[in-house]
Design a protein around this nucleic acid. Structure first.
Lengths: 227, 227
DNA sequence: GCTGCTATATATAAATA
DNA sequence: TTATTTATATATAGCAG
């Protein structure tokens, strides 16, 4: 694949062979990885150089992969365990393998990826199941959102309360200075343009006389979710 | 490497993913073989598709290759199993059990039965997946229905055609008997309550009045001897 | 043994049959 | 599914450091 086309046979020149080995080895591993990622496949690759060095690639655990592979080739090939224990283990493996296969299939169906051979009845049932699942997910989602809102609301109410306390302290201080303040003076500073009603909505922490509010941002944000 | 550059991430479209898997799998195996031949290396390659099918390539004996590989990796790691085989089986059990657990969990999530600890992002993604699956199921369902309809239409059209042929044969027979039949006579026997026009529409595999009847008992019975 | 550099050979994504 | 076709993207053979 390059300057010249080459025949697929052992490269005579040793140096060239090594260079090619190095390049192609990396290329092969890259391709293996791409296949695994692109197609959601499991890939295991083992390479021994002529000099005996080992290189490998595995999309997941090479150990698991090879065990899985052995299992398959065993099932498709020979069968010869005398040991009862081994036989038991093997039965277990078969059972588990079947379970995995079954669940994988079910998952694929739910993803709509393997609907081969399903009849109308089964398809309808599947759709119902998906719709039910979706509904639950959506509910959970909404619940989460509501919780978040409630939490924010609590925090907001808390801030309102704090603010009110601050306001009272300020009043006390001003009074203690001997200056009896105009009522309107403080209110102007603290409540700005808000109307009292906006507070009554905001949670139970606030029971007293609707003492205006303070951090306008908070009350605005809090008010929205409750319509 | 083609019409468009793609990102190396799981291909969303199922069909495209399968096609790509098929192509790249072959490409990868070809490259593996070339590496083995050109550079006098030993190469072993194992591929599991997402559906669980196995593909492999080995420049020599996969068994030998894997044993050699295990030897190497063991040397680089640990080495102390009472019974290697038992250990392997046991590991396999653990791995399979984990796989079952994982898939069960995934299934439960898709059924909306175990959404504990999922955040908003994850819930949204799950919902998207469910919606995608449902959409595919619905599509498949519709396709099935359309096929059924089309099939029935074809059969109907075919019956109509047969019927017309039978009618012609019967006419010929009656003529050959030397009895010039009343036109009305045959029509009455064969088409029964049908007006002649209803037949002329139904030429080949049309879309017109699909099923109707035609296969009235009478005409069918008449037809049999001539087929 | 690596690089980096081309000019080519291959692989392959999409569209199509 | 599977195969062909096409336009492009990649891989890489042969060199030079």
């Amino acid at each position: 694949m390059a300057r010249e086309k080459i025949k697929i046979k052992k490269i005579d020149n040793i140096t060239a062979r090594q260079v090619t080995f190095s390049k192609r080895r990396r290329g092969l591993i890259k391709k293996a990885e791409e296949l695994a990622v692109l197609c959601d496949a499991e890939v295991g690759l083992v390479i021994f150089s002529a000099t005996g060095r080992v290189f490998d690639y595995a999309s997941s655990s090479m150990k698991d992969l090879l065990e899985k592979y052995n299992l398959h080739s065993n099932n498709l090939g020979k069968m010869d365990q005398p040991s009862v224990e081994l036989q038991l283990e093997n039965d277990n493996n078969i059972r588990l393998s079947n379970e995995v296969a079954e669940k994988s299939h079910q998952l694929r169906k739910m993803r709509g990826e393997d609907l081969q051979g399903l009849n109308l009845e089964e398809l309808n049932q599947l759709e119902k199941m998906l719709e039910a699942g979706r509904s639950r997910v959506v509910q959970k989602n909404e619940k989460l959102l509501m919780n978040e809102i409630a939490s924010l609301q609590r925090k907001g109410a808390h801030l309102v309360e704090k603010n009110q306390q601050l306001k009272q302290k300020l009043q006390l201080i001003m009074i203690s200075r001997g200056k009896k303040p105009f009522v309107g003076e403080i209110d102007n500073v603290i409540t700005e343009e808000h109307s009292p009603e906006s507070l009554t909505n905001v949670g139970s922490c606030n029971s007293g006389p609707p003492l205006e509010d303070d951090c306008s941002d908070t009350s605005l944000k809090l008010g929205l979710p409750f319509n």
